[in-house]
């Protein structure tokens, strides 16, 4: 085979082929795992498919999912952002403070996203200007930003905010009828963000440059990509989405929470990204994979709750899942490297 037979990508393949290529072959195992998990849990608990429970899962997904979208950009660029949960906490408090003082939900949302973006830029500055490794940099800000969240909150306590509009963002639903429970607004926000992120990652110069710089920073720089500028944008986006997640937390709980509801989000988001097929070394990973993994993790967590598994076991399970996700990725990588070596020796 010398040259591909495939024509220009403007033809119309079948809907099945398109769906398959959208999900991606490497994500097929995630879909299968999700189906098995759903079957397993629903056979054990009648409540699982109840309207209320599905709403609950959807709302839980929103917070982790928003953060995981940003984390996908970060990890594909061969970085890591451990400070996301702390940024969300700070954003939650800022959002509540702004809404209580201005009575404007719009300004509150903006405030939350703005503080997240700012903190993301702080991360980028530490990583690029001070040349601190991203893991260490965001581990440091993981602590520092959480501290800032408590400092912003008066007396370090949650800030109550009773605003029906804001509540709608967190717990509202659309298309609600007698038979249909409706779709959570927060879940719709996640879907919108994920769709935009998918388009950005797959079709824009910015998105493709993230894949290049993550796959091989030296080669990317020699091909004219400005790595510093890229990192600023990527960590700012991660911060902005963490901020938006913080806003959702405020909306759901009717209070600006410096810690509760945003702790441990980094672990879940990072797990989701790796489970979704991203490589630790960077250069690989998709929004679709991440979203499937977020769903899988949300269902798993919900299932464990329904089956009455104690929190302590759940923490152990979450840790194991992260190890498994990365191990699977490394195993895939080793396999494809073996194939590469074989191909190189054979001279394709």
């Amino acid at each position: 085979m010398t040259i591909m037979e495939k024509g220009r990508p403007d033809g119309g393949p079948s809907i099945w082929k398109r769906t398959a290529s959208f999900v991606g072959a490497e994500n097929l195992s995630l879909v299968i795992a999700l189906v098995i998990l759903l079957a397993l849990i629903s056979s054990q608990s009648e409540f699982f498919f109840s309207a209320r429970n599905l709403l609950n899962i959807g709302q839980n997904m929103a917070v982790v999912g928003l953060i995981a979208v940003g984390m996908t950009l970060v990890i594909v660029s061969a970085g890591l952002d451990i400070s996301v949960g702390s940024m969300a906490g700070a954003a939650s408090v800022v959002c509540a403070l702004v809404v209580t003082s201005t009575d404007s939900v719009g300004l509150g949302v903006l405030g939350g996203v703005a503080i997240g973006t700012t903190l993301g830029l702080v991360n980028a500055t530490i990583i690029t200007v001070l040349r601190v490794n991203p893991v260490v940099a965001t581990l440091a800000t993981f602590s520092a930003f959480r501290g800032i969240a408590f400092l912003i909150a008066p007396d370090g306590r949650p800030v109550g905010v009773l605003d029906p509009e804001l509540r709608y963002l967190g717990s509202g639903r659309v298309l609600q009828t007698a038979e249909f429970p409706g779709i959570p607004v927060s879940f719709l926000i996640l879907v919108a963000v994920a769709v935009v992120a998918h388009v950005v990652m797959t079709t824009t110069v910015f998105g493709r440059s993230i894949y290049s710089m993550g796959g091989n920073p030296a080669a990317a720089r020699l091909a004219g990509i400005n790595l510093t500028a890229m990192k600023f944008k990527i960590y700012a986006i991660s911060g902005a989405l963490a901020g938006l997640a913080g806003v959702i937390v405020t909306a759901r709980t009717s209070s600006g929470q410096p810690a509760s509801g945003t702790q441990g989000l980094e672990l879940e988001a990072i797990t989701a990204v790796f489970l979704g097929g991203a490589l630790l070394a960077g250069g690989k990973g998709t929004i679709v994979g991440t979203m499937l993994a977020v769903m899988l993790i949300a269902v798993l967590a919900n299932g464990m709750n329904l089956l009455g598994i104690a929190t302590f076991y759940q923490l152990v399970a979450k840790g194991l899942l992260l190890v498994a996700a990365v191990a699977i990725g490394q195993w895939r990588l080793a396999r494809s490297e073996r194939e590469q070596a074989k191909a190189a020796a054979g001279g394709v």
Partner: peptide, 21 residues
């Protein structure tokens, strides 16, 4: 391998990355 190519990405991306703009 270390400076020229992004080995984990496609021929299309590697060949076009200098002219993305």
């Amino acid at each position: 391998k270390t400076e020229g190519l992004i080995l984990v990405r496609s021929v299309m991306e590697n060949a076009s990355m200098a002219v993305f703009r």
